[in-house]
Amino acid sequence: MSIDRYRRQTLVKELGQKGQELLATKHAIVIGGGGLGSHSANLLVRMGIGGIDIVDNDTVDITNLHRTSLFTQEDLGKSKAFVLQEKLRAINTEVRIRGINQKVTKENIESLVKNADVIVDGTDSMSLRFIINEVSIKYNIPWVYAGVYETVGMVMGILPKKTPCLQCISQNIPESTSGETPVLGSLPAIIASIQCTETIKLLLGKPLAGLLIYDVWKQCFDTMDIKRNPHCPICGIKKHSLARGRII
């Protein structure tokens, strides 16, 4: 591991040299390579995660460019996963980076996440988030939810059976009804930055901040201290007995 590359970062007492070395042993999977996922992957690679997979079956579209920073006009029509793989490899050759041009489904998610230490949410689908949540709890893999809408973003790190899961806080969340979600271009970068920080804290075993709500227009930041729902159908009952890594 290059010492110079991370010198300024290891001076940060919350991380330090030990934290940096620990981070280099960790593997993340980013599900979705759009506004949130591309920014989060970028930061994790620059900050020195050991390995990262980015899964997305979509191509770069002109409508992605206002809220992303790695994609350019030259990338239009190309696979997001492969473009990110190429660009992130050029940023940090010390990180194992793999772009996976695949749709994430209930059927394939277990094989995709089985080697990950953390799942980073970059999807725009609530139904996929509930699939991520379920597999996270089942195999004890932490994940970090993040979402953006108009000028508001939310982030919540989820440590299975220790902190509230997505289902615990989701009493009445229907799938988005509109085809296109309105998003201010400056929002995903800042929400991904928060998400990346919570991801690193999870990987280093540091306490999480709870549910974070940020409005980039109002410059209003809130954290909500919440508890697990003991009756949660996903994390409240010991229904999954398979050990981590023994995915069948």
Binding site: D124, G147, G153, M154, T181, P182, L211, I213
Partner: peptide, 11 residues
């Protein structure tokens, strides 16, 4: 009691 806006779904 707390009230907050819905969980947001975009990415």
């Amino acid at each position: 009691i707390t009230l907050s806006p819905p969980v947001v779904s975009g990415g």
